[in-house]
Nucleic acid binder design. Sequence first.
DNA 1: AAGCTGACTATGG
DNA 2: GCCATAGCCAGCT
Length: 111
Amino acid sequence: MDDFFNKVYEVVKMIPRGRVTSYGAIARYLGVAGSARMVGWAMNTSRGYKEFIPAHRVVNRDGLLTGKRHFDTPDAMQELLENEGIIITDNKIADFEKYFWDPMKELEGED
DNA sequence: AAGCTGACTATGG
DNA sequence: GCCATAGCCAGCT
């Protein structure tokens, strides 16, 4: 699939459990740096997608859970992340750099 | 059809 | 270090 949204889904689905990445990192990996908003929009539309998309593993560049309000419940995103061993403090991921999963590096030889 | 909105980010004051 | 601006572009009104 070459559709932008579909590529986003592919990358997000590849995020390992207990790791997170940012909208901008995905956008850059897909060669559309600057269109990070579209990645966020893709997450929004992912709710109606046929497959489950772990959108909770995608946060903004500061590790802030900016998308939590788009989940079924306001705390669903945080709970999902904590369930994966990630500590959330004030809507922000603790040790964000430690958990950060950069598709540019992790998927270096792929795609 | 035209304008607004937004799960973003970088930059400048 | 916080606030304002500006690119970004697909959906919604």
